[in-house]
């Protein structure tokens, strides 16, 4: 699956990112509004789904080498978040879906959590 597939599956808007970035391959994802949990439990994830809307979401993704952030529940990031994502080559998508539904759709399309039991 690539970032473009995620955009299609979630019927998401592309908030920042270009054609090349939509080709990024992604294997695993994580959904959380608590960034410390993302930092604690996530291993080699490439996509972060969150309803939290502040620059620390991008910083967390940066530390974890993630390639794409999906804002769920129609959350629209402000310009500081978008600029930070551009600086770090991270794609931002926005979907009106809720977290549970968005994660479920990605899971049923083959994306996994990255931990052994997921």
């Amino acid at each position: 699956m690539n970032v473009g597939d995620i955009q299609k599956i979630l019927k998401a808007d592309l908030i920042c990112g270009n054609e090349d970035q939509l080709e990024y391959e992604v294997q695993t994802a994580c959904g959380s509004d608590m960034m410390s949990d993302v930092l604690a439990f996530v291993k080699n994830q490439s996509v972060l789904l969150t309803g939290l809307n502040n620059p620390q979401v991008v910083r967390t993704a940066e530390m974890m080498d993630m390639r794409c952030i999906v804002f769920v529940r129609g959350k629209t990031p402000d310009s500081s978040v978008i600029e930070l994502a551009k600086d770090h080559d991270i794609v931002i998508l926005r979907t009106g879906l809720r977290m549970f539904t968005a994660c479920g759709l990605l899971y049923s399309n083959g994306l996994r959590g990255g931990c052994e039991k997921e």
Partner: peptide
Amino acid sequence: KEGWSTAPDNVRSLGFGAGMGLPNIKK
């Protein structure tokens, strides 16, 4: 201890204060 935090609610609303800071640093 994982999950133990003294952070106020406003910090939790920013995505932190889940009591994972020091445990994560150790990890």
